[in-house]
């Protein structure tokens, strides 16, 4: 659940979602769910001249499984806090696996 919580803290930020078909979509993060499906608003496809397929779409849902990367705004991320959360979560999941 670490990344689900992490992405929830980024709602309202501008992110670029790079898909496994090399399409990059820039937009405001609206919501995320447990599968890391992502919803964006005010979207713009990068290199729209080459990819005009979604020109009339402003708000979209991206299936988590087709995401390669999400480019994030570094200013919105507390890396020390994030590392602590990752450490805690990994220790927790090891403990539950043994129980």
């Amino acid at each position: 659940m670490l990344f689900y919580s992490f992405f929830k803290t980024l709602v309202g930020q501008t992110v670029t979602v790079e898909l496994k078909n090399d399409l990059s979509v820039v937009g405001t993060l609206v919501s995320v769910d447990q599968f890391l499906n992502i919803k964006l608003d005010n979207i713009k496809v990068e290199h729209e001249d080459q990819h005009p397929h979604m020109m009339s779409v402003k708000n979209c849902f991206i299936r988590g499984s087709v995401v390669r990367y999400v480019h994030l705004p570094p200013a919105a991320i507390d890396t020390a806090l994030l590392q602590d959360a990752a450490r805690r979560e990994s220790q927790q999941s090891t403990a539950t696996a043994k129980a």
């Binding site: 670490l2 990344f3 992490f6 496994k20 991320i77 890396t79 990994s90």
Partner: peptide, 22 residues
């Protein structure tokens, strides 16, 4: 996958190996 490599500072990971790198 896809003949890609990344180098960076590891800030987060989970059991799926989702990562955040800086």
């Amino acid at each position: 996958r896809g003949d890609r490599e990344v180098r960076g500072r590891l800030h987060a990971f989970d059991q799926h190996l989702n990562l955040v790198l800086g």
